[in-house]
């Protein structure tokens, strides 16, 4: 199982394209893509498990809502998901148990803030080899 992401250009903002063998890996890699826009983030201390659940009518919206929650946890609590276990990801529901660890500001390198996960060109698709997602973050 594997997932990866790449950043792509968008006029004033940043796009993230994610591909993965499974939908669970897609969720994990999407989170990594988001963090990569913010900086090279290092953590300190033991992670704590946090259960996150989302409901909507499409997978793309579920993924966006999850990423928006990661952004809030980073900004309000300075915690990032060191690891994630996806318990469910279908058309209606996304469940994740995130191992949330505190960001070590001294060892991290910051690039810039992410304001929001937009709905612009937001997509989750099945491909021959697994899944693909795109989303654009407002920076």
């Amino acid at each position: 199982m594997s997932g990866s992401f790449e950043l792509f250009d968008h006029t004033a903002d940043v796009g993230i394209r994610v591909s993965a063998d499974t939908s669970a890996e897609l969720v994990r890699a999407a989170g990594e893509g988001l963090y990569a826009v913010i900086g090279e983030l290092e953590t300190t201390g033991d992670p704590q498990a946090v259960r996150l659940e989302f409901s909507a009518d499409e997978r793309a919206i579920l993924l966006r809502d999850y990423l928006a929650e990661l952004l809030v946890l980073f900004e309000c609590e300075q915690r990032i998901a060191a690891d994630v276990e996806v318990t469910v990801f279908d058309e209606k529901c996304l469940g994740v148990i995130g191992q949330m660890a505190v960001v070590d500001k001294a060892r991290s390198v910051f690039f810039g803030e992410v304001k929001a996960i937009t709905y612009h060109e937001l997509a989750v698709r099945r491909t021959e080899n697994g899944y693909e997602a795109t989303f654009i973050v407002d920076v």
């Binding site: 004033a12 809030v72 900004e75 309000c76 810039g112 803030e113 304001k115 920076v139």
Partner: peptide
């Protein structure tokens, strides 16, 4: 959530442009 995000940020520049 918005209160939490804004709590320590009044009087800060941010980033980007």
């Amino acid at each position: 959530r918005a209160y939490e995000r804004g709590a320590g940020q009044c009087g800060t520049l941010g980033s980007g442009n």
